[in-house]
Design a protein around this nucleic acid. Structure first.
Length: 409
RNA sequence: CUGGGUGUAGCACAGUUGGUAGCGCGCGACGUUUGGGACGUCGAGGUCGCAGGUUCAAGUCCUGUCACCCAGACCA
């Protein structure tokens, strides 16, 4: 991408309504634009980050046999009424609107009901199971208070996976596969070493749910972890009774803030029963489908990663999610010409700062945008037949011969 | 929802006892610059969140309303 050809522009100062670090930096660097509290537009760079995160999740889920769909945002109240969740008393974050013809609609805050309802069309026998279906979908939640940049929005992008099984054993088995997939996803996103599977309050059918909590100063959750992080509890379940159950002592735990970046949950029959999702078993007896659900906040992940790795100069993206691998700057006549040539060979992976501004401004923007490598080709470096490479994360500078530059991509 | 705060140019802000709006950044033109956000000259850009009201006159005073930020409460 050529900077000259894009409409985005960096800002020296963050808008005063962006106090959160992630929102301020993502806005200044031109990744996002705020429409209103908790509602953001994703600009070319931000969209690339979102797509990179999605692709990592997609690859890992597909690898364990999941199928991707895209369900509707507009919700027919009927399936929700069967579970009681269309009620504003039951679910207080609905956005609702009216049909021109008079009926009422909801904007999906999650998708258990429509997913179950849809699959009633396709699941009728044990031969149809198991099934693992997921999507990346925009969710709407009428939060009392949106805050923290893109980390708590009224409209946000979420990956939601639902699994369907003939038995609890099969659900348990798949649940473990998702745990493994989640571990790989967090690793690939660059936050594996600071993201923990956490015990949180459960629902009707299971004692605990599991959240994935990423350590973050400004995270909204409080968690407690022991020395080797083998046991991590959300504050909501951190009590003497639970500690006794796990044979743990309170004094071995440390308190810290974290952001919930994912969760996995055994639903059992919570939604399949009221919605009548059944199958015929091998003896031709009707059985209710066992279910699990597994969420991951895509736009929140972008905010968490932005927030976590930034320094006083700007964003620092892990290579796996960075919108581009190289921020390319050409200086001087010959340097600019050679930069053009290199750009033209790998245009899809390079952000080329071809603007007619002084180098200092380009350097500052490269740091603000957090692109992993800044490559400078100038008449000076060309005298040695090399380009200068600065790694954003470490600040380390090195010289690389021009024909080896593509190794960075 | 409770408490506190803020709405003036794309961004950040100033605007005195009411008298018809200003600075910096950014933007356009020209010139000088050209490896760490350069400099000079000229210039464009505003129904002062919105709606009422008071007044000869409202960014400024009054009433209402909306939005936004922070803390709390809330949060599969």
């Amino acid at each position: 991408m050529r900077l000259k050809n894009t409409f985005i522009k960096t800002l020296r100062e963050a808008p005063k309504d962006e106090l959160a670090k992630n929102g301020a930096l993502l806005t200044r660097a031109g990744y996002i634009h705020k429409e209103m509290a908790g509602v953001y537009d994703y600009l070319p760079l931000g969209l690339r980050v979102i797509e990179n995160i999605k692709n990592i999740i997609r690859e890992e889920l597909n690898a364990i046999g999941c199928e991707e769909v895209l369900m509707s945002t507009l919700q027919n109240p009927e399936p929700w009424e069967k579970t009681g969740r269309f009620s504003d008393q039951e679910v207080d974050i609905w956005f609702k609107t009216k049909l021109a013809s008079g009926g009422e609609l909801g904007l999906a805050p999650t998708h258990e009901e429509p997913m179950v309802n849809m699959l009633k069309t396709y699941i009728s026998s044990y031969k149809d199971l198991p099934l693992y279906v997921y999507q990346f979908q925009t969710k709407f939640r009428n939060e009392l208070r949106a805050k923290s940049g893109v980390m708590r929005g009224r409209e946000f992008l979420m990956k939601d996976l639902y699994s369907f099984h003939v038995s609890e054993a099969d659900l348990d088995n798949f649940y473990e596969k998702v745990e493994d997939a989640y571990a790989r996803i967090f690793d690939r996103l660059g936050i594996g070493d600071c993201t923990y599977k956490t015990f949180a309050s459960g629902g009707i059918f299971s004692k605990y749910s599991h959240e994935y909590q990423t350590l973050l100063d400004v995270g909204e959750d409080t968690i407690y972890y022991n020395k080797d992080h083998s046991l991590v509890f959300n504050k909501e379940v951190f009590n003497d009774e639970v500690l006794a159950e796990f044979g743990a002592k309170r004094e071995d735990f440390e308190e810290t803030n974290a952001a919930e970046t994912g969760n996995i949950f055994k639903l059992m029959f919570k939604y399949s029963e009221p919605l009548g999702l059944k199958f015929s078993d091998e003896e031709n007896h009707m059985q209710t489908v066992y279910m699990g659900c597994y969420g991951m906040g895509v736009s929140r992940l972008m905010g968490v990663i932005a927030e976590k790795f930034a320094d006083n100069k700007g964003l620092i993206w892990p290579k796996s999610v960075a919108p581009f691998q190289i921020y390319l700057v050409g200086i001087g006549e010959e340097g600019t010409k050679r930069a053009e040539e290199f750009y033209n060979e790998h245009a899809d992976k390079i952000l080329f700062d071809d603007r007619d501004v002084r180098p200092g401004e380009k350097f500052a923007d490269s740091e603000l945008m957090g692109i992993p490598y800044r490559v400078v080709i100038s008449d000076k470096t060309l005298a040695d037949g090399v380009a200068e490479v600065v790694e954003r994360a470490s600040g380390e500078t090195s010289k690389i011969s021009l024909d080896k530059l593509s190794d960075l991509l």
